[in-house]
Amino acid sequence: MLDFSGNDQKAKLVALHYANQFDDLITIELIENKREVTDKDEARKLAEFYWKMLDASAEDQENGVKVLGEVGLQYWMERLLNIVGGYLSSIGYEDEWNKVCDEI
């Protein structure tokens, strides 16, 4: 499961904000730990979500949009990079994560 323990609750809220914005029901369930990634396609989709979220957060920052009370979510995006990448690696989908990262 995606690990949003300790001080990473805000990272979870940021990820949920963008997953809801994208109307991405599977990713919402992953973030809420209601399901796990079950195959390579889902792993790839989660990796792609991270990069789509990163782009959206950069656009929000450029436009001065507050997300959860903050303009600029660089810290949380870095935490989410580690959380999502670490999760996919830990369940055997490091190759899918790396492929998506290389394509960006």
Rank of each mutant, 00 (worst) to 15 (best):
I31W: 02
I31E: 00
I31H: 03
I31D: 01
E32A: 03
N33V: 08
K34L: 01
K34T: 03
K34C: 01
K34R: 02
K34N: 01
K34H: 00
R35V: 02
R35C: 05
R35K: 07
R35Q: 00
R35S: 04
R35D: 01
E36I: 04
V37A: 01
V37Y: 03
V37L: 01
T38M: 13
T38P: 05
T38A: 06
D39C: 08
D39T: 03
D39N: 07
D39I: 03
D39A: 06
D41Y: 11
D41M: 04
D41K: 06
E42W: 10
E42D: 07
E42H: 04
R44M: 09
R44H: 10
R44G: 07
R44C: 07
K45G: 04
K45E: 08
K45S: 11
L46Q: 00
L46M: 09
L46Y: 10
A47P: 02
A47K: 00
E48L: 08
E48H: 05
F49I: 00
F49Y: 09
Y50H: 07
Y50W: 15
K52A: 10
K52R: 13
M53P: 02
L54N: 11
L54A: 12
L54C: 14
D55Q: 09
D55E: 13
D55K: 14
A56H: 10
A56V: 06
A56C: 11
A56M: 12
S57N: 12
S57R: 02
A58I: 12
A58E: 13
A58H: 11
E59M: 14
E59F: 13
D60H: 14
Q61T: 15
Q61D: 15
Q61F: 15
Q61A: 14
Q61K: 15
E62S: 11
E62N: 15
E62F: 15
N63L: 14
G64A: 06
G64E: 05
G64Q: 11
V65C: 10
K66E: 09
K66D: 13
K66P: 09
K66H: 13
K66Y: 14
K66R: 14
V67N: 06
V67Y: 13
V67I: 14
L68F: 13
L68E: 12
L68G: 03
L68I: 02
L68T: 06
G69M: 07
